[in-house]
Design a protein around this nucleic acid. Sequence first.
DNA 1: GCCAACGTTGGC
DNA 2: GCCAACGTTGGC
Length: 137
Amino acid sequence: MTMQYWLVKQEPDSYPWSAFVADGATSWDGVRNYQARNFLRAMRRGDSVLFYASGDAKEVQGLATVSKAPYPDPSATEGDWVSVELKPKQAPSRPVTLAEMKADGALKDLLLLRHTRLSVVPVTPEQFERILKLAGR
DNA sequence: GCCAACGTTGGC
DNA sequence: GCCAACGTTGGC
């Protein structure tokens, strides 16, 4: 199985990158959107994930790994929802802002930009590499 | 604070 | 099954 790449979005007010790092690993639950759920369900252990902070931050702030394959969302009292466990890997040398990504031609098809309200989106290997490069890696 | 995008709900 | 109303998200 080849490695897949993803981007997850989070409001910095509710769960900042620093809290994620402090936790060491977290159950990524509470997703209540069918499209996002389907992407979560397609995640596999070892996949790479970009951590994007929305709201006031609007930037990719870190890199994470899927540490546990999809399982039923423990926070769901009804319905068929899933979560995965994510582990923070590292913060990039510097964050990559939404404005930068928007201005970058190589990222014009980034789903983050086209489906702004989706909290979990796939990223192509090329887009992933490009974002890491912008992050100074 | 406003507005656009868009998903969901409910009436018909 | 359609569509209007409404709620939520997120960028500006």
